[in-house]
Design a protein around this nucleic acid. Structure first.
Lengths: 325, 325
DNA sequence: TTCAATATGTCAATCGTTTGACATAAAAAA
DNA sequence: TTTTTTATGTCAAACGATTGACATATTGAA
């Protein structure tokens, strides 16, 4: 690979001059500028970003740790994060923790070793203290870690409220909630909170099932939901904590010959792209994924530039009523 | 951030010694090793991977260019690629081209500038020559570029054949195929080829509609499929070139009150995780995504290490018969 | 005692780029 | 003509690590 020296030699100038045209600093005549460009062209020269990063002590990299990019919600989130990062010259290193503590820790170390400019954490299996030691520009999704670390979330409580209220208002008598893992102290737990409070408040019978830590074991989802619906055949409303879980519910209702929304109503959470393509199209609570992603990138950049930033970034949700309710 | 010098100073040794324990080279007594580890611990030292990369002229980075990670197929692919890359100490830079020629070109340049060790291309909007100039370890998904560049694909022709045959064998009289964009010279076009040949061979009436380049405009998909089914109400079988497209078909059939599989049968392609959760569960052609991802990573590594590798990596597909046929 | 193995140090170059300090020369402006 | 501006060059340090060549000292074994 050609270096700046090769370019200088070919253009008949010094590396200082080449660097000057490369970085638009100091005086440069059009003639030399052209010579230099031509030499770069001829050699197919690409400045070595690694060397640049080393020197300016900035990698223009953002680390993204999520459970897995193959989960539709995180896939969409990652897509938008990369989009907005790219707009301002940042690159994204992607890390799938699979909600494995060891992996998550490893990834944090790895990202620090690689001197990423900031870390966006969408996976949280570790204790608060472990994150506090990270001592790095961080943005968190759905988890409050400390007074300094900014976080992003949707209005989880509001979302839970919208979903639960809808089921009750539509006349459900016994409603179920399928929550994420409640041990991970996520703000998403507020969805469950809202569910519990509202169902109690309205005197509606309710059950909650909690998913295991390993969210990606398909068969487990299935048996869990199946058990739930078979044990409580009178459930006529389900609030699932994600659209993917809602898909499982729809599927199992279909297999159990429960008609949606006549026999049972279903509300999801996230509003992933495919939600509107389910049959029937899924009623769900929309998180503004794109705006949240944009915000995450901005929060990293602001920290890098030492600009002031908001610590709490809670985004409004929206009820997308479709045909499962 | 502490450097190797700080560690050396604190441990009371030279940087050479620290480097020796860091890289396990030469003679080191247990005592010094411990001192050094302790100093690293105390300073919370992380070797600067950027400096290391610069020196060894290897970034341990793989660039991944795909249309978008938010598409379920590519999300799953990306997830596995990152998984296998991580296993052998590689990191993944994701790039969503959105099938935009300019972006794709930019990303290739960017990845080269960042001296990634190899590029996995799952997005192909450029001409063959443009890739030939890349002159870099590359692996390609679903596209044959030159004699040197290895590619990975599923047995597209076989898959198209399985899908079409199934529809015909199930008694469909008029079948439709929704293809990807045929201008991009992808191997996926062989799915359409198979469809055309088999329907002709069996004397079954057939229509093909082709999606536009911008695969991510939702409304466009919808109107296209709607038009197809309204213009040809006698279509009783559809082979969609991806599961996501199949989801649209199912959805529209649902809206048009066409019963699946009684009135119309549907076959998808990919077997994304959600496919089995569709209602009805989608019959589809399974690509072995995980194996393909693993292969992609291996092909990069082999090129980096200058080991011999296969140029053609065509993976068998499998008919997953579920309830839409 | 002598030799080899073990353990550490010294020094400096290297990876590719940026940048500051300073020198010099030509062109343009006063 | 003199001064200022513009254009380029020279040189060397710095970013943070690795590594090779070589020196020196301490062990332990032969």
């Amino acid at each position: 690979m050609p270096t700046i020296k090769d370019v200088a030699r070919l253009a008949g100038v010094t590396v200082t001059t080449v660097s000057r045209v490369l970085n638009n600093r100091g005086y440069i005549s059009d003639a030399t500028r052209q010579k230099v460009y031509q030499a770069m062209e001829e050699l197919n020269y690409q400045p070595n970003e690694i060397a640049r990063s080393l020197h300016r002590r900035q990698s223009k990299l953002i680390g993204l740790i999520i459970p897995t990019v193959s989960h539709p919600f995180f896939g969409e989130l990652a897509g938008f994060i990369e989009y907005y990062a790219h707009l301002i010259g940042y690159k994204v290193l992607i890390c799938n923790s699979l909600l494995d503590r060891k992996k998550e820790k490893e990834y944090i170390e790895m990202l620090k070793s690689n001197r990423v400019d900031g870390i966006i954490m969408g996976s949280h299996t570790l204790e608060v203290e472990e994150y506090m030691n990270v001592n790095y520009p961080i943005v968190t999704f759905d988890r409050r870690i400390s007074e300094e670390i900014p976080y992003i979330s949707s209005d989880n409580y509001g979302g839970g409220k919208l979903a639960t209220n809808l089921l009750i208002q539509k006349g459900c008598k016994k409603i179920a909630h399928i929550s994420g893992n409640l041990q991970l102290q996520l703000l998403a737990n507020q969805r469950s909170q809202a569910f519990i409070e509202l169902s109690k408040e309205h005197g509606v019978e309710s059950v909650i099932v909690e998913t295991e830590l390993n969210v990606f074991d398909i068969t487990q989802y299935e048996t869990m939901i199946r058990n739930l619906l078979e044990k409580h055949p009178d459930i006529d409303g389900v609030f699932a904590s994600s659209d993917v879980m809602a898909a499982y519910v729809i599927q199992i209702c279909y297999l159990l010959n429960k008609r949606i929304p006549e026999h049972i109503k279903i509300v999801g959470y996230d509003d992933i792209k495919l939600a509107s393509l389910f049959v029937p199209p899924l009623t769900t609570i929309r998180q503004p994924i794109e705006e949240m992603a944009k915000c995450a990138v901005e929060l990293i950049v602001k920290q890098v530039n030492e600009e002031p930033f908001e610590r709490e970034n809670v985004f409004p949700v929206q009820l997308m009523e479709r045909l499962t309710t």
